[in-house]
């Protein structure tokens, strides 16, 4: 068979990471919004992500797992260069994950403490992920400008997750909390717009590769469809935040922003897996390993998609509170 396995696995890794960013993005966003809600609302917010966060986080394991097993040479370089932000992210994810469990079981000031850990964990993980992305796309260059750029991406991703979290709450809650969520979503979208504008201006300066790929007429004209779609989706989210609009629309719009932004990013980097250093073919694992995994993925991934959709169907509708039924 003449399948280009490295390309297939790069696509799979991309899908896993995109799935992670969207899915865990909304629950990290909900976590970051916690301090803005009342205690009763916090319980509803946590209940809305309760059945999903474990599985959502598993997409990160799959994404990183595919990087490790399909592109082992890149795994060491990328995660070695990002060692400290990765540690920060992991600590954040740990705090968030266990705080989720502990906050319902603790009482009094303990519960309040775990609520803060839940917020802190969500925020730390989000900031670290954005920071890692910023370091990654610039090829881990050293220099104050590059670090500042990474921080900027980190802050923007936090805004992006807040947007996802808020629109998720618009979809899953009602009444006063939903009203609040609409207001949060508006702040989120302004935050994202500012962040994306700054990052878009800064990126071509930071990375020659990105500049060459995007500013190459007449291809540029076609490529402009992607940012145009992002802006369109942003406007769609803003307009559908009116109470009259259907509750699913803001979330769908926010997901669209992520899909278009991610496609743009993937286009910028391909075929590199370590920017400017390693292509996916250079970093790929031995064909025998890819072949063996390929069949597993072909069989198992549709099953995963199937029961994930099933789980989301089981828990569709508005959360009414009461975490454990």
């Amino acid at each position: 068979m003449t399948l280009d396995l490295p390309v297939i696995f790069a696509a799979l890794m991309g899908i896993a990471i995109l799935a992670y960013v969207v899915l865990d993005g909304y629950d990290l966003g909900v976590g970051m919004l916690m301090p803005a809600a009342t205690t009763a609302q916090q319980d509803l917010m946590v209940a809305s992500i309760g059945p999903f966060w474990d599985a959502n986080e598993t997409w990160l394991v799959l994404g990183i797992g595919l990087l490790l097993v399909a592109f082992p040479a890149a795994h060491g370089i990328v995660l070695g260069a990002l060692y400290l932000p990765v540690t920060a992210m992991l600590i954040g994810l740990m705090l968030r994950g266990v705080a989720f469990e502990f906050r319902v079981k603790a009482q009094g000031w303990h519960a309040e403490l775990w609520n803060w850990f839940f917020w802190l964990g969500s925020f730390l993980a989000s900031l670290a992920q954005g920071f890692m992305l910023g370091r990654y796309v610039t090829g881990f260059e050293s220099g104050a400008g590059y670090w500042l750029f990474a921080l900027l991406v980190g802050a923007s991703l936090c805004g992006g997750y807040v947007l996802l979290g808020a629109t998720w709450l618009v979809l899953r809650t009602e009444g006063e909390l939903q009203q609040k969520a609409r207001a949060w979503a508006r702040w989120g979208i302004m935050w994202v717009a500012l962040g994306v504008a700054l990052v878009s201006v800064a990126t071509p300066w930071m990375s020659e590769m990105v500049r060459d790929k995007w500013f190459d007429f007449p291809r540029t004209l076609w490529l402009m469809a992607l940012p145009a779609a992002s802006v369109g989706a942003g406007i769609f989210v803003w307009r559908s935040l009116r109470p009259a609009a259907a509750d699913w629309k803001p979330f769908a719009g926010a997901v669209t922003i992520y899909v278009t932004a991610f496609t743009g990013l993937a286009y910028s980097i391909f075929p590199f897996v370590v920017v400017d250093r390693l292509t996916i073919w250079e970093a790929a694992a031995h064909p025998s390993a890819l072949q063996f995994m390929f069949w597993g993925v072909v069989i198992v991934l549709p099953c995963i998609a199937g029961y994930t959709v099933f789980a989301y169907r089981v828990f569709r509708g508005k959360v009414k509170g009461g975490l454990y039924e």
Binding site: A55, A285, G296, Y307
Partner: peptide, 23 residues
């Protein structure tokens, strides 16, 4: 890696999602 990797990948694919989703 060509041996360890696929075994780890199969663990994620066949076990982790199953546990987390049905939990």
């Amino acid at each position: 890696g060509a041996i360890a990797g696929p075994l780890l990948a199969y663990e994620v694919l066949t076990a982790f999602f199953l546990e987390a989703t049905f939990l």
